[in-house]
């Protein structure tokens, strides 16, 4: 069949011997027809089946990976938030405990102070009362001393001098003596 086909060898095929199979133009229609049919079918299959399927596979994987990464990031953020919350709660509790301790300490101090003040005030009052009483007793005693001195002086005057001395004179003399 090749012998029938070395009529139309193109110019650039002249270096080869006549009837070089790739340049047999009688077969060109057959080659083109079957190429169109087979390549057309291949193209159709690629466009309709293979390429959408591969795109789907690769995109599904990409989506899945980015979704998983997003989920991991979300969980990480959540963990960090939880840790932050825990730290905050811990700090709050610590501050609260400190505040309660301070408050209690202040309250107790105030109470003790008040009691001390009250006790001191009571004592001062009693002291003042006692002092007043002492002064009173002292004054009373001194007053009685005057009376005793007058009585004693009257008795002495009566005994030594006989007669009677005026009561008033004696009192005035005693008072004058006591003034010294």
């Amino acid at each position: 069949m090749a012998q029938t086909a070395h009529t139309e060898v193109p110019a650039h095929g002249a270096a080869h011997k006549a009837g070089f199979p790739p340049f047999e133009s009688t077969y060109f229609p057959s080659q083109l027809l079957w190429l169109a049919l087979t390549f057309g079918f291949l193209w159709w299959m690629m466009a309709k089946v293979i390429v959408p399927r591969l795109t789907d596979i690769i995109e599904t994987r990409r989506d899945r990976i980015s979704k998983d990464l997003g989920e991991a990031q979300r969980l990480k953020d959540e963990t960090e938030a939880a840790i932050k919350g825990y730290d905050k709660a811990l700090a709050d509790a610590r501050a609260k405990a400190q505040a309660i301790a301070n408050e209690t300490r202040a309250a107790l101090n105030a109470e003790v102070e008040a009691k001390r003040h009250a006790a001191e005030a009571g004592l001062n009052e009693k002291l003042a009362a006692a002092e007043a009483r002492i002064g009173e007793i002292k004054a009373q005693a001194l007053g009685e001393v005057g009376g005793i001195a007058t009585d004693t002086a009257t008795a002495l005057v009566n005994h030594l001098l006989g007669g009677t001395a005026g009561q008033d004179e004696i009192s005035a003399a005693v008072a004058a003596a006591m003034q010294k």
Partner: peptide, 23 residues
């Protein structure tokens, strides 16, 4: 000449292998 030749046969084979493998 639209004959089914050995070339046509291998064009069919190429298509079948390529699409078959990928599918």
């Amino acid at each position: 000449n639209f004959s089914f030749t050995n070339s046509s046969l291998f064009m069919v084979a190429t298509t079948v292998v390529a699409t078959g493998f990928l599918a």
